[in-house]
Design a protein around this nucleic acid. Structure first.
Length: 839
RNA sequence: GCCGGGUUGGCGGAACGGCAUACGCGAUGAGCUCAAACCUCAUUGCCCGAAAGGGCUUGUGGGUUCGAAUCCCACACCCGGCACCA
């Protein structure tokens, strides 16, 4: 396999008659020149309009891979475009450097996780430099630096002051492999999102952020993101928040046993209060405390036996929705407030303990799950919505209410929506229920029983309880633990670090213990984009004025895998900080672009499939520019790139073709272009005009196609047109260099130098478009008969409708097509179209 | 089941309601070469035809329109998210 030139191999592989440049030498040369010029530092001096180009910061796991190469190539097109347009651009980079992989590596190698982490960061930073992303390196940050997590801890304390961080004892998701708890968002299909182990439940006292308090605002504020965020991300967030409207209805409990812990009444959540008259039984989640409180002594043995069965079934088993319904009668009854009917209370596992109130009124006639249960247990089915004729199962559609009246209220004849309103009104009047909204979203569990994260700045004191670490004692720094000290034992490794965990209570001075859990790393990444605005600020998490100048970020680029977790949390943080009066906006990212994945042969790259593609090898073989170009040209940015379908070799070939133009130009830099070849000039200006629109609508693949067309056109002009000396050729080639600088910065810089300009092409400025050159002096008019193309005419752009019609009807092909027909109507859209309707 | 997105040549993909298939990959032929690779040029949606030319074509079926890949309705299939969520 013959590669492109690398170093001195170029002589052998590339014949002299087709001149090429040396990739490695070119990259090395310009990288050092650029470093010296310090091209991409945000000025932040108010002389130019600011733009914030944000890309999701990486986790430092080894070196960069194909995915990084894609997202950064796309992101950099936007950032470099903004630079060319003359904006003051902030394009920062940092590392999300707390997290489990470093900790696991540290255990294996008997080190502190910082060693692995910071070594990887250096490797990745060097790779980003080589990859020539226009980052402002002066703003670099790492979330594992004490200077950073100081303020993560500070924010935690502020959230707690506002009642938005609290501790509670409850069942939590537990990953037995990583030996830590997980947030709901980190459990995918019953498995740990990170390691794939089956998640179990544990009862633990843990810290939570009250994200549920912001559920409605997280939903409402999405209206402003509509159109500039991908539909699917907004849909995923809506799904996750899971708003549903309905009612709470109270049912008085009766039954043989009167026990002290048995509640007088139980409230259910329903989205179908209109079907209340059709409730024929009542179900509580078998694993909820409530079931235990309701069960009668007589039924207790049966209940306990059932509960054991339920506990045996894992969450994975419960995911199957077509399992037969099971349950057990609890020996209690719930009184239906509308008709006094005594509904038998069952415990079942098809009702979830942690959704709504963990109890439901069962309406088998209008709910398939309840219907299935009623069938299995021989329970009554009472229709309260008129189903179509011969309807056999639960009917969930609209229709007039039936069998739904008592002495005070009748729903009969109303449709579902009207009936809901009527019954809620009645329930509220009788204090037996109320209209309500329920969310699927749960509070964010942020405690982690791991070492490599920001310690939770709380001291537990037997006398004073939970005591926040005073602000002037922040940051609470991690102790220097390594190796076996970090081994997961089900409690945080910090708990065993006696020197660290034992402290005097900040309030009473007595012996106390630090909270030994660390924060979920998603806390770190929920505010880093704010820190970038003033990365060295030491008076707070960020300089309020700097954030006012730069935020919200005009463009955020990153993977759709963060559609819920990171983006939802960041939106939540932003709203809280807004409410604290620290920032004046409620959404952090004005526009979002999700790039696709890089796959190979139709499948995700993986070690087990052996289909991985090594980025370093690709860069060695084809060079940075060809890889970046390949990523950008492959297709729409949000689509996956199948590496088996693309051609980095073709990209390199194109770059060499483009570069060759710069060697052919013979006119002098700054030569007057006014007299240059008009046809080529028009092509050039039209390309620039279209390029701007294409970039702004993120059609980067089409942008590349347009640059390719301009290169082809210029090549033809040199070889068989106006010739290399024409100033239009210089103009076209310089334009190619500037446009190419967004995608292939090394090639563009090399072209720019050969064209006689000092570096850097990255700051050459966007070419001015001469509007007069966008006007064609001749256009192609198409002539259709019955909507079918029959002829093309070359006509002046200002041709009159009458002239165009006459020319069209006179055309030989049209005359032939109209033979024996009568012209009934002629549609003319001068200057491009004539459609003759004939019959 | 609910929600979101999609379906265009051999492949990746272009296309303000008006030339479908831009750009590229691949393929085929030719030039260069002792030869091959590289490079250059040409051809390349499908069908009929020697050619001129003609017919067909944007998942399927309808509709709106002078004109539909594009707008509307129904259906099929693919991808993604949520899911015994009451």
């Amino acid at each position: 396999m013959a590669g492109p030139p690398t170093g001195n191999a170029s002589v052998r592989l590339w014949p002299v008659e087709r001149e090429t440049y040396d990739i490695v030498a070119t990259q090395d040369k310009w990288r050092s020149v650029w470093d010296e010029l310090d091209l991409f530092r945000a000025a932040d001096d108010g002389t130019r309009e600011r733009r914030y180009a944000l890309t999701m910061f990486p986790y430092p796991s080894g070196d960069l891979h194909m995915g990084h190469a894609e997202v950064m190539a796309l992101h950099d097109v936007i950032a470099r475009y903004w630079w060319q347009r003359g904006y003051d651009v902030m394009n920062p980079i940092g590392w999300d450097s707390f997290g489990l992989p470093a900790e696991n590596a540290a255990i294996r190698n008997n080190e502190n996780p910082a060693v692995y982490t910071y070594a990887n960061i250096e490797t990745q930073a060097e790779s980003f430099r080589r990859y020539a992303i226009s980052f402002d390196w002066s703003r670099r940050l790492h979330t594992s630096d004490p200077e950073y997590y100081h303020w993560t801890q500070w924010l935690f304390l502020k959230f707690r002051e506002r009642g938005l961080a609290y501790r509670k004892y409850s069942p939590v998701n537990w990953c037995p492999n990583d030996q830590t708890v997980l947030a709901n968002e980190q459990v995918v299909g019953g498995m740990c999102e990170r390691c794939g182990a089956e998640v179990t439940k544990r009862e633990l006292s843990q810290w939570y952020f009250k994200v549920t308090e912001y559920a409605q605002r997280l939903l409402d504020d999405m209206a402003a993101l509509e159109g500039s965020w991908p539909d699917r991300v907004l849909a995923m967030q809506r799904n996750w928040i899971g708003r549903s409207e309905g009612a709470h209805v109270d049912f008085v409990i009766t039954g043989a046993d009167q026990k002290p812990d048995r509640p007088e009444s139980v409230t259910v959540f329903t989205t179908r209060p209109d079907t209340l008259f059709g409730a024929t039984f009542f179900v509580v989640a078998a694993d909820a405390k409530l079931a235990d409180h309701l069960v009668s002594d007589e039924q207790r043995p049966a209940f306990e036996a059932y509960l054991t069965e339920v506990r045996k079934a894992s969450d994975i088993d419960r995911l199957a929705t077509d399992r037969p319904k099971t349950g057990v009668f609890l020996g209690a009854y719930a009184v239906n407030p509308v008709n006094g009917a005594q509904l038998p209370v069952y415990a079942a596992d098809y009702v979830l303990a942690d959704y709504g109130t963990g109890a439901i009124m069962a309406v088998p006639a209008q709910d398939q799950r309840d219907y299935d249960f009623a069938q299995a247990f021989g329970l009554d089915i009472v229709r309260t919505v008129q189903p179509p004729a011969d309807w056999e199962e639960a009917y969930t559609g609209n229709g007039p209410a039936i069998n739904s009246a008592n002495d005070e209220v009748s729903l009969n004849g109303l449709d579902v929506d009207q009936a809901k309103n009527r019954i809620i009104e009645w329930l509220e009047r009788k204090s037996a229920g109320r209209g309500t909204v329920n969310f699927r979203l749960r509070d964010w569990l942020l405690s982690r029983q791991r070492f490599w994260g920001a310690p939770i700045p709380i001291v537990h004191c037997e006398t004073c309880g939970e005591v926040p670490v005073p602000e002037d004692h922040l940051p609470v720094e991690l102790p220097d633990l390594r190796g076996a000290d970090l081994k997961p034992k089900g409690t945080s490794p910090l708990a065993a670090a006696e020197d660290w965990v034992n402290v005097d209570c900040p309030q009473c001075g007595r012996a106390a213990l630090r909270d030994s859990d660390t924060m979920d790393t998603f806390v770190d990444s929920s505010w880093y984009f704010l820190r970038y605005c003033s990365p060295n600020y030491s008076e707070g998490p960020f300089d309020v004025e700097a954030v006012r100048r730069w935020m919200p970020a005009e463009q955020y680029v990153g993977g759709v895998e963060h559609a819920i977790l990171h983006l939802l949390y960041s939106r939540f943080f932003t709203k809280v900080l807004h409410d604290m009066g620290l920032i004046d906006f409620v959404e952090p990212f004005t526009a979002l672009l999700n790039q696709g994945q890089v796959i190979n042969g139709g499948k995700a790259m993986s070690k087990s499939l052996g289909n991985g593609v090594n980025l370093g090898e690709m860069l060695d073989q084809y060079g940075v520019d060809a890889i970046r170009l390949t990523m950008v040209f492959a297709g729409p940015p949000e689509d996956d790139i199948d590496w088996a379908d693309v051609s980095p070799g073709g990209s390199l070939k194109f770059l060499q073709r483009a570069w060759r133009l710069s060697g052919d130009v013979t006119s002098a830099p700054g030569a007057d272009v006014a007299e240059g070849d008009l046809k080529l000039r028009k092509a050039t200006h039209r390309t620039v005009h279209e390029a701007a629109q294409l970039i702004e609508s993120h059609r980067f693949n089409v942008l590349v196609a347009k640059i390719m067309e301009l290169v082809n056109t210029t090549r033809k002009a040199i070889d068989s047109g106006c010739g290399a000396g024409d100033t239009a050729v210089r103009e076209a080639t310089e334009t190619v260099a500037v446009l190419l600088s967004l995608v292939a910065p090394y090639t563009a810089e090399e072209m720019w130098a050969r064209l006689g300009h000092p570096p850097s092409v990255a700051k050459a400025g966007w070419p001015a478009v001469d509007e007069s050159l966008l006007v064609e002096d001749e256009v192609t008019a198409i002539v259709q008969v019955q909507g079918k193309l029959r002829a093309k005419l070359q006509v002046p752009p200002d041709i009159s409708a009458a002239d165009l019609e006459a020319a069209a009807l006179a055309d030989e092909a049209i005359v032939r097509a109209l033979e024996g027909k009568t012209v009934r109507k002629v549609i003319v859209r001068e200057p491009t179209l004539v459609n003759v309707v004939a019959g």
